[in-house]
Design a protein around this nucleic acid. Structure first.
Lengths: 234, 234
DNA sequence: CGAGCCCTTGATGCATTTCAACGAATGTGG
DNA sequence: CCACATTCGTTGAAATGCATCAAGGGCTCG
């Protein structure tokens, strides 16, 4: 755990992703960064480690700098629900409740910036523009989640997986058409609301349709994005 | 379309539901209400009418005062997705995009307060506490949606319906155990991600299990809430 | 009183889950 | 360094839940 170096490129990039590209032009931005460098911390989490667990007091907000993070909850009967995968620039943990309602686990070694929630609230009260940037970000999340709801509710297993892989291509591979999946099949299954076996079969199905190539079980290649979009909308 | 009477009890109640119970104690609240009474409007929509449609410029925000409202989107292939039902005190239409990404239709005759988006933004910039109340509200929505995602992904059709009915009991019947559903079977189907027939069969299924009584197709009675919760968690 | 809409129910086929087996990759202790 | 256990992914076969196709009943409204 080390104090925050807000001049690092990786950190700048992640902050901009969270609070808007134009963060650095906002009035109050300088002050905000100064306060961050004083009281926020850079934290490393090893693979498999928890950033926080369901029920922990929600005193901090985290911004992912590197690595992959999975958000999960468990139901009364012990079934697990994975509801998000987070990467560089994604934010986690902001909620008005006093405890986290889900756990955050590192799928790979990960680095996060840890910010006291009060500090954030304080900044928001003094700098409405930053608050607005952040609020817009929340709206984006809501849109994203609504899409996810639609996919879960109305699509077949291979279509859901195809949608997921396009999303991963965008977020992990910068739409380059190739990426390495940091999560395993059962994580994907619990995210897409299907069984481990169906997930595996759906991978095979997409491969058979020549929509994807599976270089190794975690290395995926997407050659024809348009064809996949077509397939999802069928 | 008439100017807004902010002294009406129904309107006060709905505003408080949106901006927090303690709205009236917040600094700036008085000013906020004054501006609303000047520039916001009370609008009545008849059954089946649209409050706005997908693609309309998103210049206004609406707060439901009475009646039932359904939010829907349609996919490229024409399939419809219902993603929310809104009642008294619920807010709709706030988004940072310039057009609405969904349509809002009145299931019953409905009354809404129509507020210029700019006015809201302006208030938020000047009164951080009100902005925070509102942002907390958004977080609640996000929580609600995450539950919905879990239900859609992991539960059987009768369980999904049971969950939906408990939600309706809370929101429509104030947890009294009886309520009148303002939407029809196909709306529920498109909301829960299943076919019209499966929805109907799920109603019959819950009735056969004695978890609900169906007084008429739209009037539902829930006697044992705990038993239903048990059933959902199975 | 008939038309149209909504809800229900039955029959059939298909998609997904579940149970089960096996191969590949990785790590462990002899 | 090799047998062995363990984890993860894939695939097959059987069972199940849901969608689809189809028919009929109840209700409302002209």
């Amino acid at each position: 755990m080390t104090a925050l170096d807000t001049s690092k490129v990786s950190i700048k990039t992640s902050l901009a992703a969270c609070f808007g590209r134009n963060l650095y032009e906002q009035p109050g931005a300088h002050e905000f960064l100064q306060e961050l460098s004083q009281s926020a911390q850079e934290v490393n989490i090893q693979q498999g480690g928890y950033i926080f667990k369901e029920g922990d007091p929600s005193d901090y907000v985290f911004i992912a700098i590197s690595g992959a993070i999975m958000l999960e909850r468990s139901s009364p009967k012990g079934a697990r629900h994975v509801f998000a995968f987070l990467f560089t620039g994604n934010l986690l943990g902001l909620s008005e409740f006093t405890v986290y309602s889900f756990s955050a686990v590192a799928l790979t070694g990960a680095t996060v910036v840890k910010i006291n929630k009060r500090l954030i609230q304080n900044i928001f009260e003094r700098h409405p523009k930053i608050a607005k940037s952040f609020h817009d970000f929340t709206t984006h999340v809501l849109h994203y989640v609504l899409d996810q709801m639609y996919i879960l509710g109305q699509k077949t297993a291979p279509q859901r997986l195809a949608h997921f892989l396009l999303d991963m291509d965008t977020r992990l591979g910068r739409s380059s058409g190739q990426f390495y999946l940091p999560m395993n099949r059962i994580d994907i299954a619990d995210y897409l609301g299907m069984s481990l076996e169906t997930t595996s079969r759906s991978f095979s199905n997409l491969k058979k349709r020549k929509l994807i190539e599976i270089e190794s079980s975690h290395k995926i290649i997407i050659n024809d994005r348009a064809a996949i979009l077509e397939f999802i909308d069928e």
